[in-house]
Design a binder for these strands. Structure first.
Lengths: 365, 365
DNA sequence: CTGAAAGCGCTTACAG
DNA sequence: CTGAAAGCGCTTACAG
């Protein structure tokens, strides 16, 4: 669902019929505090006090200042203020996701935003596309703007490049996956446990040949889910067969090929465990195209919209991405509030939701 | 899909086993350009020149500076630099969405990000939740950080509060809906046209009683879709009946009630036109619960995942949210690049995708 | 409570 | 090409 390269319709272009007033060649200078002070007939300091609400000011002067602010359309420059302020806080944080447009991460985003908003903190957000270089560029660009903290879904294998920023007081939290080569707070889902539950569920329905389709195993969540898959197979007597383990690199397209090859093979799996939301969507598409949705069992990791309305309903192990974001933000702000203890790792539970596709028996084949 | 108030699992908390080194009570000061200059044995100006790459510098000095930067872990403070720089550009823009976690807006987000990224511009993002006050707070908070531009999905009925910022050179683009009381560029979908196509499609299948379920009509897109609905009814001889027009306020819950009441009524509609992605999802849920998905026709505005795999497949009028974002960003940057012409309005076409639900005949009832 | 002055971390004319 | 000085828009001690 990385949206790049999508075909776009050619737009109908129409001029607005409102004719704008003659524009000056150069934009006018924005009014500064100095302009406000001059108009209000007070000192710069007084304007600063009124605008920031930090100190007691004679109400009469305050009114003058407010009027001048109003008249000039003065807009405070918090970037400038931040430079001299004692706390040095920019009231902004940076978020590095894999892809802001993946519904999983956009829900995490909203969880973070809702917490940040209660503290009037703004969020920068960007997509790494699972590219370590891009993750670092984004994080460093945010740091160049002196964000107070960073929430990262790690793509990079080494986060030591952030050590000095943390030492300088930047709050750092990892979400969805833990950090590497740096000690920091993290919030993750119980990936291995969720995968075990998914595979145990399939084993309970009688499956022995269960395929795994997941992200590259160098991604923490994928590795954990693979581990859970293997542990559950071992515990429930499922078959360990490397031919059943796949890491379709380019998701949608590769998933389709992989599923078709698996099912056309000599000793096909009777069930699929799809280890990520986009992989689940693609695998479902293929199963339906093959007309095998009632024959081959499937459990997906991550819940997806309309899962309950498909025939059969899609059994999933659901994460709670909103909660992941909320908890991450809370850890972040606890650091900013002065917490100096050891780093924390929160593991959020997953929930198996049985809807039909995971309860298909192997004999359906 | 506003994620607030969702139940969260209680996390398992575990201490990390890595024991952090003794932390100093106060965070060390970040190194400044001055520190770099001192270590490298050059002037502040030289460091600035090397770091910004703006001017020719003796390669030997440049190497010294680079080494000092490396040793100290110096991180450029672009907020400070921005204060004095001639162009005054912060290389950041602000995005005000209805909800960053709605897949429609997160796709718009990605479209904008991909364009901004080619120019090394960072994006702030926030959710207005359709609240005018919140839209303004967000926009003004972004402006306080001196963003170079703003992309807004308007919730407010009056954007004149941005007039002075535009006059001062801020680039402003509206997306999904046009602005009010301000002259600015905008990119929208052909909402009326898409709705006409949807309703005409249902009329072609023989429907005369077609219900409309859309957002509050004070939202531009909803009003436009309602207009398209009415125009198509008029053109194709559908029944105009106010009892068929509904604006379920709290989406999911109200949609369910509305659909049930409509279908249980004396003269029920034979088809539904659902005018927004979340409304479509909720209406489908209800139709399936009632077992009427093969009986009552439905066309939704906005495509949704898995729509093709439902029984019947869900016929939709699809927008291209990624393209919406991309075009909005292009208009924005053209302003920043010096375009001074009249404001532009781009209208992107929609696409009707017939998948089954929209082709159910009225006699199925 | 108020104002003049210094200074936050940079960039930019200005001399050399 | 390089450096000393001024200044961006603010906040903050410091006097009064």
């Amino acid at each position: 669902m990385t949206a790049t390269g999508r075909g776009e319709p050619s737009p109908r272009l129409q001029q607005s019929d409102t004719v704008p007033a003659m524009l000056p060649e150069r934009a006018p200078r924005r009014p500064t505090m100095r302009d406000v002070a001059a108009l209000a007939g007070v000192s710069l300091s007084t304007v600063s006090r009124v605008v920031s609400g930090s100190q007691q000011v004679d109400p009469e002067l305050a009114v003058k200042v407010d009027k001048a602010v109003e008249m000039l359309g003065y807009r405070h420059n918090s970037a400038a203020g931040n430079l001299r302020r004692a706390d040095r806080l920019s009231a902004s944080i940076g978020l590095v996701f894999e892809d802001v447009s993946n519904p999983f991460f956009s829900a995490v985003h909203r969880g973070i935003e809702d917490v940040a908003r209660t503290r009037s903190v703004l969020t920068f957000a960007g997509s790494s596309d699972e590219n370590p270089q891009r993750e670092r560029e984004l994080a460093e660009a945010f740091l160049g703007r002196r964000v107070d903290g960073l929430v990262i879904v790690p793509a990079s294998a080494d986060h030591s490049y952030l050590a000095r920023d943390v030492a300088a007081g930047m709050a750092l939290v990892f979400v969805d996956r833990p950090p590497r080569f740096i000690d920091a707070d993290a919030v993750v889902s119980d990936n291995a446990g969720g995968a075990r539950a998914a595979v145990a569920h399939l084993a309970d329905a009688g499956h022995r040949r269960i395929a795994f389709l997941g992200d590259r195993p160098d991604i923490f969540t994928a590795a954990e889910r693979l581990r859970g898959y293997r542990e559950a197979l071992a515990q429930h007597g499922g078959e360990h067969d490397d031919a059943l383990v796949h890491h379709p690199a380019f998701r949608a397209a590769d998933v389709d090929t992989t599923v078709r090859e698996l099912l056309a093979g000599a000793d096909p799996p009777t069930a699929l465990f799809t280890g990520q939301n986009l992989i689940t969507l693609a695998a479902l598409q293929t199963l339906h195209e093959l007309g095998l949705q009632h024959t081959v069992a499937l459990v997906g990791f991550d819940d997806i919209p309309l899962a309950a309305l498909l025939q059969p309903g899609v059994t999933v192990v659901a994460q709670d991405p909103y909660a992941l974001g909320k908890h991450a933000a809370e850890l972040l702000f606890s650091r900013l509030d002065g917490y100096r203890g050891p780093s924390r790792r929160e593991v959020l539970p997953t929930t198996l939701i049985a809807r039909g596709s995971g309860e298909i028996s192997p004999s359906a084949r």
